[in-house]
Design a binder for these strands. Structure first.
Lengths: 231, 231
DNA sequence: CGGTTCCTTACCCGATTCGAACACGGCCCG
DNA sequence: CGGGCCGTGTTCGAATCGGGTAAGGAACCG
């Protein structure tokens, strides 16, 4: 089940759907990772302990033992190997992010395999000590955004954003000053296979600005081009 | 079956309905792509391996070999050429996005050929990833121009340019010293399809100079020829 | 079912663009 | 030396374009 030479380290994937598992293996292998596949939770936990992978990719819904449970037991045993969850539904996301499961990241299905690979790399970069740009809290003017807690405050007061709104603001603020076209934002924030009109971006920008109140100016419009966060 | 010189690269289209295939070829060709057409899956796979196209556009339902199967086999063989699927039904979309396949994008029938072309371009842009030379900030005299932030400063003070004005200045400053005729500037900055008179260039140059204030001299007039940025 | 969230559509307003018209100035030629 | 002339600078208003905004409807989830 383990795939050849792990030049960049071994990734443990625990996923019961063969189609998904195969694709994930394919992409991770292509990127130079070694991949070990397990189909059920119990075997997954055992493999994690035995093989000491550099990252675990765990489906949440698993036969035998839930992915969250695998993670919990690893942490209990003092094993802090980075964990990325695969999750089908958004409400599960709340549990991962809200409750502290000790997860490092998550990807919601359906997801692009490319994205998963990117996350694996990001997690490793983070674990290596070099804090990626992505997960540090960022402040622009009165607006502070914390990617790991998914919270936004304006002058200290918390602001409630929806998931899409947050992702949009986070993407812009992660690269302050840089101007993105609507197409770029659609591709990066919404995902590679979303067929939404570009006006959708406008509407969400407006929504974010409304919720930011006086700090609406953090998102600047570049007429004829797109949007950028101040910087 | 292959259409002449692929200035922008060769696109492989595998589609059994001639009407659709012709339309797709028409639009891609018009956009400067070379197009190679195949009608059935087996020939499509062979063509993909032989011709090494920059993008594959695959119908899902194909005689001989399904588009999904072509994609799977390419991936297995280590071929990561970007793939865009043509799909008739929405439930197929779930399978694609739900990642049974290593697809890069998909388009549902009926689709606008324009949209397909746009997606081909988008996929290529994404695959290229590496932003070109243009991305770096340039300084000429007291004038600094940052393409990604789309900002211009004169002696440190920010200057507000409109989109067209910025593009014009950026184009000139990206190639300092080189003289461009008004026609060249119209074609490059405004775009191929613009039928604007050449005096329009003058007007915009004047506008940029006005906004640059003391540094207006960065754009030098070459009487009887055109304009150039200092170098 | 009722409430969110998200995407689309349609309308309105202001910024931007474009080209005509006029002003300016150097250059050629008488 | 002076006068026309060609090419360019500049001004200005109408038309266009792009973005803000509100409202409706679909999808989703509890």
């Amino acid at each position: 089940m383990t795939v050849d030479a792990p030049q960049r380290g071994l990734v443990l994937v625990v996923e019961d759907e063969p189609a998904i598992a195969d694709l994930v293996r394919l992409y991770l292998t292509r990127d130079g990772f070694g991949v070990h596949l397990e189909r059920d939770g119990t075997a997954g936990l055992a493999a994690a302990r035995r093989l000491r992978p550099v990252v675990c990719v765990l489906d949440i819904a698993l036969p035998g033992l839930a992915g969250t449970e695998i993670c919990r037991r690893l942490r209990e045993a003092g094993d802090w190997t980075p964990v990325i969850f695969l999750t089908a539904r958004d409400d599960e996301v709340d549990r991962i992010v809200g409750l502290e499961l000790g997860a490092d990241d998550y990807v919601t299905k359906p997801f692009s395999p490319r994205e998963l690979v990117a996350r694996v790399r990001a997690v490793l970069r983070r674990a290596a000590g070099a804090p990626g740009v992505d997960e540090r809290a960022r402040t622009v003017g009165p607006v502070t955004l914390d990617p790991t807690r998914r919270t936004v405050t304006v002058a200290g007061a918390p602001v409630q954003l929806t998931s899409t709104e947050f992702d949009l603001l986070a993407y812009l603020m992660a690269r302050p000053g840089r101007v993105f076209t609507r197409e770029e934002l659609l591709a990066s924030v919404w995902g590679y296979a979303v067929h939404a009109g570009t006006r959708t971006v406008d509407v969400h920008v407006a929504q974010v600005r409304a919720k930011l109140g006086g700090a609406a100016g953090v998102i600047r419009t570049h007429r004829g081009v797109g949007y950028a966060a101040d910087g």
